[in-house]
Design a protein around this nucleic acid. Structure first.
Lengths: 177, 177
DNA sequence: TATTGTTATACTCTATAACTATA
DNA sequence: TATAGTTATAGAGTATAACAATA
């Protein structure tokens, strides 16, 4: 493909990525009170992968550990999950859904699928599958390297070539020492 | 397809939608200072569709007019766009990119396509095209009806059937009167 | 009276940094 | 010294409501 055409394709992709916010906000509106989208994401991952540590959850969410901690605290305060001590490492905590959490997750599952079934009524199963496959791959293409992007982007500069910058391997705030 | 399998597919789709945040944050990191993602979106739409009114822009962004107003004010304060009077309606304002705004947009375009070319180096053009097509359609399936969802979702309730609720046609906060 | 756009306020999500307690 | 997790703070994005100017 001609380079020019490919670049236009990338531009269009960027535009559509921004538009996904519309869909996400639409899904957010059907969530019950006290369970915002971030919390729902935690519940979904615990339901899918089972008990895990904070750090693993943060990795699956691709979000800083501090953010994960807040979501988890929110859920724990409402009795939807427990933070059990890890016998192997006293610094660590094992996250586990409570029965109430499982019920809530089930309810979220019902509402979500109901909404999608309504909105995507004219989609074929194959198309939905394609979209899932491509989005999963997109996430993989981006998620593997966090912070390869400029941390301090150049103000403007004409022929600016975004140089790779340092690569970080973790979801973790770098230690200040 | 069996209903059960289809529902699992919807569940997976919901999960992958959440994961798009990773990609969007990755793209946000290459933006120049003083031009956050929201502003970049405004620039992109003005570049693509040309001069327009606030209300049209809000509609294209699928975001409340108040939000649009803030983004636009941010860009106008930095000289990237002008708010011209509309000869046909003195309440309205016509938005137009300044030369500086066009330059900035060009720079954003370069950075974005560069990043995508790097990350999607192992994607075929056809795959990228497919993803764009499906995401565009997804947006259409959701964007057409804002607020069909529950505005005040039921707390929990077992067999809750999310009833459609009132349909709003605009991006507008309803008048309080 | 209805519509266009602005502003004030509040809430969610996120990242950074500083801190604790373990390892 | 390094790691797991918590908390405080700040920034971006959004929605709601109240308001001014015009239609």
């Amino acid at each position: 493909m001609a380079e020019q055409a490919q670049y236009e394709q990338y531009e269009e992709l960027a535009r559509q990525l921004g538009a996904v916010g519309i869909v996400k906000r639409g899904m957010g509106r059907i969530l019950p009170p006290d369970c915002p989208a971030g919390s729902a994401g935690v519940l979904a991952l615990l339901g899918r992968h089972g008990d895990m540590r904070m750090s693993r959850l943060a990795e699956l969410l691709s979000v800083d550990l501090s953010v994960t901690s807040r979501h988890v605290a929110h859920l724990a305060a409402r009795g939807w999950l427990e933070r059990l001590p890890d016998p192997a490492d006293k610094r660590s905590r094992i996250l586990r859904l409570t029965p109430a959490g499982v019920n809530l997750l089930d309810e979220l599952y019902r509402r979500t699928t109901h909404l999608l079934a309504e909105r995507l009524s004219d989609w074929s199963d194959d198309e939905v599958g394609q979209l899932i496959r491509l989005m999963t791959r997109l996430r993989a293409s981006f998620g593997e390297c966090r912070s390869t992007a400029n941390r301090h982007p150049a103000p403007l500069g004409p022929g600016s070539q975004p140089d790779p910058g340092p690569v970080a391997k973790t979801t973790r705030t770098p230690a200040s020492t």
